[in-house]
Design a protein around this nucleic acid. Structure first.
Length: 300
DNA sequence: CGGTGATGAAGAG
DNA sequence: TCTTCCTCACCGG
């Protein structure tokens, strides 16, 4: 579930459920999650907010003014950056409904308290305390589209772009937020074979952007065309965001929005499509030609 | 019951 | 480049 759109929706979810809520005490980490750090933070009263960037979410724990007035060394706001792995999600429940596999819990001051929890069945998710965005992850395909685009198009000399386009689309240094379903949908809708070199797909876009820049100076209007691959990364991710929720969400409409998401998928997990396993061991769904860089050693 | 694969990376060599 | 980290749902015998 967790690709850029889900992470973005997770941040939105946190902000919605935490609006006007006051949290208190220490965050609690599950015993079994020995890989991730404790969150050394304690305040009698704090608020929680979140922002997303690609496939990361940053929570902020913000001590309230009433805390500061009182005494003590005022602990500033503490940031925690999450990556969701294959199964991460935030939930907001009563204590008695705390989900199985909740691994990091934040309690509200209410009586009885409510709990914001990071739930992660497979425990591939990670969090870092006091951290910023992970170094080497590129701009967000959803929220930083122009930076994302220019970062990719100005980096085409990087040998990373020798790889097949379907594999480069999962490279978070350049495509922060794209995952296995988005890459399939993007390539399918453009009819691009998954195993052609990324550079061959992207170089024409760099040339086109140069042309636009030159014509722009001359005041020439360019005809609007079909969205290109980079635009589609942004556009399709935004479409999924606008579906409201995909597979998580405890919202009452979660079932219908899940159905809406399944209907939205045209390629991923569609039995009419072909599949191959890429060089990273990930299944790519596609239609038509595989492309010249397809793994040779497969049989059926 | 066993085998498989799942919206993602780390870490090892 | 490859293996590993985890749990669970699904499918076939």
């Amino acid at each position: 579930m967790p690709e850029g759109p889900e992470l973005h929706l997770a941040a939105r979810f946190v902000n919605a459920v935490c609006a006007g809520r006051v949290f208190s005490g220490k965050p609690f980490k599950s015993e079994v999650n020995w890989k991730n750090p404790e969150v050394a933070f304690e305040a009698a009263a704090y608020t929680v907010s979140a922002v997303s960037r690609g496939k990361e979410v940053q929570l902020s724990l913000n001590p309230l003014e009433e805390e500061k007035k009182k005494k003590k060394k005022v602990t500033g706001s503490l940031k925690i950056v999450f990556r969701f792995g294959m199964s991460g999600v935030f939930r907001f429940t009563s204590v008695s409904e705390l989900p199985k596999h909740a691994h990091l819990m934040f309690y509200t001051r209410d009586k009885p308290p409510m709990v914001l929890s990071f739930v992660d069945v497979r425990r591939f998710g990670r969090w870092e305390v006091g951290a910023g965005w992970q170094k080497d992850r590129g701009p967000c395909v959803i929220l930083e589209y122009q930076d994302f685009r220019s970062h990719v198009l100005s980096s085409l000399a990087d040998t990373a772009f020798n790889r097949p386009i379907c594999e480069v689309l999962l490279n978070q240094k350049y495509f922060n937020g794209v995952g296995n379903y988005l890459r399939a949908e993007v390539l399918f809708r453009l009819g691009i074979p998954p195993f052609v070199s990324a550079r061959s797909v992207l170089e024409p876009l760099a040339k086109a952007d140069e042309l636009v820049a030159q014509n722009g100076k001359k005041g020439v209007k360019i005809k609007t065309e079909q969205p290109d691959l980079l635009e589609l990364c942004n556009k399709l991710a935004l479409e999924v965001v606008s579906l409201g929720a995909t597979t998580y969400s405890h919202a009452p409409d979660s079932e219908s929005s899940h159905d809406a998401f399944l209907r939205w998928l045209q390629c991923y997990y569609n039995s009419d499509m072909r599949t191959l396993v890429d060089h990273n061991g990930r299944t790519i769904w596609f239609k038509g030609e595989a492309g010249p860089l397809a793994p040779k050693d497969f049989y059926y």
